[in-house]
Amino acid sequence: MTTLELQQPPTSLDASDFNHTPFYCEENVYFLCKKLCSNGIADAQGSDLFVVVISNDNKQIPLWHQKSSNRADGVILWDYHVICIQRKKDGDSHLVWDLDSSLPFPCPLATYVSETVRPSFQLFSEFQRFFRVVHVPLFLHHFASDRRHMKDSEGNWTAQPPTYEPIVAEDGSVHNLNEYLEIHAADAVTNLPADLTNVVFSQKHGVVIGEAHLEEFFSQIS
């Protein structure tokens, strides 16, 4: 048994229990959050869940242990990626739910950062990762996607879409995915002010955090 297996939190769920369409990670996470809320693993309203969109100015982010990778170390260069982080109480680890990861499912946040983000790995500045953290109750209310970003200039699909209908937001929006994907280094919080946790609970698009502050941020909202 490996160290990662020893750290795996107990759960009756497997990644195969969730909807998963390759290259539609934002929709996969949307339905993952709904399922966690409905089956009692998360709060019914999703108050302990956060959608985290990972990207940067260049839309080039390296992440390790990704199932789509052809490399032994699982590294892949995404334009963006979307995961769910669950805030845990009573001293338990925060958990990362990533349907595209080969790590334990779910995975402790510290392990995920160490193994997937690998902040100790020296990267050129254009590959630095930034994290847009959005509270799930707000995300489920506002998020919408008509999948236009997955069509080429001639209107052909660049990846086969899910069989279900596109997500329309509770507020009536039909497409605003681009608003979540616009992640820039200039927008990232360079320190963690005391009121930052209040912002993430009230702002539609959450807050943008650099990789060096991700774990610290979640420790402050425990």
Rank of each mutant, 00 (worst) to 15 (best):
N176C: 07
K35L: 07
S202R: 08
D187A: 08
A185G: 11
L103N: 02
E165T: 12
Y112N: 05
H20C: 11
A159N: 04
I221Y: 03
L177Q: 05
K151L: 12
D14H: 11
S153L: 07
H94P: 04
Q122H: 12
W78Y: 00
F121T: 10
S68C: 14
P104L: 09
V134E: 06
P108T: 01
P106R: 03
P62A: 03
L109I: 06
V189S: 14
T21C: 12
N28R: 03
A188S: 08
N39D: 15
Q8I: 14
Q45K: 15
P137F: 02
W64S: 07
A44P: 12
Q220D: 11
L177H: 03
R147W: 13
W97A: 07
V53S: 01
V96W: 01
I85F: 09
M1I: 15
V168H: 01
G155Y: 06
D100Q: 07
M150E: 05
Y24R: 05
I61Y: 00
K59V: 14
E115D: 10
L6F: 15
C37R: 06
R71H: 14
P9S: 06
N19Y: 15
M150C: 09
H205G: 05
D57R: 00
V208H: 12
H184L: 10
H175N: 15
V189F: 14
A188T: 08
L63I: 00
V29E: 11
I167Q: 12
Q128R: 11
F121N: 13
S145K: 06
V208Y: 15
T111W: 12
N156C: 10
P166V: 01
T116L: 03
T11Y: 14
A144V: 00
V208C: 14
A72F: 10
H141W: 00
M150N: 05
Q7I: 15
